[in-house]
Design a protein around this nucleic acid. Structure first.
Lengths: 255, 255
DNA sequence: CGAGCACCTTGATCTAGATCAAATGGATCA
DNA sequence: TGATCCATTTGATCTAGATCAAGGTGCTCG
């Protein structure tokens, strides 16, 4: 009986990105059993609130499919997306208090949820789990710092290019030596123009115009339902090399 | 002899902010001894590079006095400060690889440095240390997310106000029920105009002009050598309530 | 004491991106 | 089949903040 439960538990997880790329992959069989035996799956459709700002979450969730946006609202109604969670990512701050941002499904989403206490217990007992959490949060911090650079110093064009490239790379995770077999890369943006604007610190009109410019230049081809074909990835990368060609840094390096 | 070393080790640390607010405060005597027996102090003067982007740091450092800026440079020479480290804060990503930003002394700085291996060993063995690191990184992540909101959605005026308030709060950590005894609060900015601009995603001229406006309105009084007297903290807070008085949110709440 | 230098302020002008305003397109539904 | 409701695009205009360009201010050092 126990064996069967274990077997069933793992069977549920075979195709799960949380096993291949997320927390579960770091667990041994016993830990995985413990976690999967108390886990349950939830679905959210695009736009649904998964977790509201200021509440203490009762669960930790791993994203199985879809995209979750973490957002903060300003008193004037403006919003800013402070992070996107992709399959394998983790929602909730272990050992933390109230959440400082709300989590909202950007697309249809499937989550694997674990009671708070179980994950915290596991982290307290298992070296590996706590280490995984530390690494994961550290990665998130580095991503946030990259975003700070984007928001603090990049032009609208560069922000859009960065975003498109990051979506491209997150799906078409090409190996170091990119084979460049199919030159036309189809990507799915997953976000509405409004969401892109909230993520990139722009307005919806600016996002739309910048995408239009890329289309006119033949860099991308805009498809239906938030898809896009990248025809000249190099052109996107070129806009990120902000230094004018032929010039070194403008003046002496500041320290 | 051993006892004496232990005694000496702790004696060095008595007045250290890393003990009262940082990692060391979380340690037991044995752990503290282990750490302090291999620690050494380093001084950096303002502008010196503590650690360059892209190198793997050999030490972890706790900030004892002064301010350290974490910065990233863009190919065109622009710079963005992605974080400030204050006394008690920690420099270096445990178990991480190459550093993704450079650490530079913004003021004269005293650091308490530990060999990488010792901190990692301590973290691997001590529940408390690893937990402290997790909490610390999680706090940094939340601060970074707040900064993302600042850079993505706030006006220059609001950015300056936020910065001044944060400096004020980090020094005059007033209790919940603020006594408001001395109405004039003297703060030390610690950053040059250029550094403020790099931190706030603005230009130096804009920073200067916004500060001038606050001075003209009587909200602050600008002193010599990067000091400032806050005369109307409420006025600073008021600029952050971006919603126009008497109005609710502009339109229906977006989801 | 004045030259040199780093930092900061102030002024004039320009522009990327915001704002305001319509038009277009694409789904759903009766 | 069109009416409704979206999201998106496109156009016209405005403005906050960038950029360009002098001046101040205060410091150190010969």
């Amino acid at each position: 009986m126990k064996w069967q439960r274990m077997h069933k538990a793992r069977a549920n997880c075979v195709a799960c990105p949380v096993l291949s790329q997320g927390l579960c992959g770091a667990l041994n069989d016993q830990e995985a059993l413990r976690l999967s035996s108390v886990s349950w799956h939830r679905r959210f459709s695009a736009g649904q609130i998964i977790h509201a700002e200021g509440e203490k979450p009762s669960y930790f969730c791993a994203v199985m499919t879809g995209v979750v946006k973490l957002m903060k609202s300003l008193p004037n109604g403006d919003q800013q997306i402070v992070g996107l969670l992709l399959p394998g990512d983790f929602l909730g701050r272990p050992f933390g208090g109230d959440s400082r941002s709300s989590a909202i499904a950007a697309t249809n989403v499937r989550l694997c949820s674990f009671p708070r206490a179980v994950v915290e217990g596991l982290a307290s007992e298992s070296r590996v789990v706590e280490r995984w959490l530390l690494d994961h949060v550290s990665d998130e911090l580095e991503k946030a710092q990259d975003w700070i650079v984007l928001l603090g110093r990049m032009s609208a064009e560069q922000r859009i290019a960065t975003f498109i490239l990051s979506v491209m790379r997150s799906t078409h995770f090409e190996d170091a030596a990119a084979p460049k077999s199919c030159d036309e890369i189809l990507i799915e943006l997953s976000l509405s123009r409004t969401e892109m604007a909230d993520y990139l610190g722009l307005t919806i009109e600016t996002v739309s115009r910048q995408i239009a410019r890329l289309r006119e230049r033949g860099v991308i081809k805009v498809g239906a339902s938030r898809t896009m074909i990248i025809r000249q990835p190099e052109a996107l990368e070129a806009t990120l090399e902000a230094a004018l060609p032929g010039e070194g840094p403008k003046s002496t390096v500041r320290i």
